[in-house]
């Protein structure tokens, strides 16, 4: 039986793949716009929690810098910081005000341990970054402004390090 229809299985599989490709292209065409809009809305929401008076933002793809505006006036800068935590990459959105103080951080994604490292995403920890000077981005035991979280040392250190490195790397854009 296999000899008789040797090519049929190949043709059938090809046809199935073809139908699948068509279905995926159609789905992509339908969802491309909504997905882009949803992503932009998500970024807008996160930026707005750092810059509450923001009503618009610009994104420069080359430098990866977000510039939030309020009635046309720039409020500062925001950019992503990536750092290696306990469970994987932690993605952080860092907001910097024009006077070189932090506007705060948003944990965009992380895979830290629930109940321990995951507490970096809670306001009690994130809010420690609001309004501090760039030089104070360090744990309090190192003379900085950030208090650690018990049993979450690795996650906390990763966030602090990641934010500090990202900020110092972006400072040149600030002049």
């Amino acid at each position: 039986m296999t000899q008789k229809n040797g090519f049929l299985p190949v043709l059938f599989l090809t046809a199935v793949v073809f139908v699948s490709v068509v279905a995926l292209i159609a789905t992509d065409a339908i969802t491309r716009e909504p997905i882009a809009a949803a992503r932009r809305a998500a970024i807008y929401r996160r930026l707005q929690s750092l810059f509450p008076t923001m009503d618009d933002f610009a994104y420069d793809e080359e430098s990866g810098l977000y510039t939030p505006f309020s009635e046309g006036d720039p409020l500062g800068l925001a950019f992503m910081a990536y750092t290696r935590g306990f469970g994987g990459t932690i993605a952080i959105l860092v907001g910097l005000a024009a006077d070189r103080t932090l506007r705060g951080i948003e944990i965009v994604s992380h895979r830290e341990t629930p109940g321990l490292g995951a507490r970096i995403a809670e306001p009690a920890f994130r809010d420690l970054f609001i309004g501090i000077e760039i030089d104070d981005i360090a744990l309090s035991r190192d003379g900085g402004a950030i208090d650690g979280i018990t049993a979450a040392t690795i996650s906390v250190e990763a966030v602090v390090e990641g934010v500090r490195e990202a900020v110092s790397a972006r400072l040149k854009h600030f002049e």
Binding site: T2, N5, L8, P9, V10, F12, L13, V16, V17, S20, A23, L24, T27, D28, I30, T31, R32, E33, P34, I35, A38
Partner: peptide
């Protein structure tokens, strides 16, 4: 579905469905 390629066919069908679900959820 020819017997000899049934597993690849199943996998293509399942992977396509999952991708569609994924994109739809992301968008809507």
């Amino acid at each position: 579905i020819p017997d000899r390629v049934r597993i690849p066919v199943f996998i293509v069908i399942i992977a396509t469905l999952v991708t569609i679900v994924d994109l739809m959820l992301q968008g809507f």
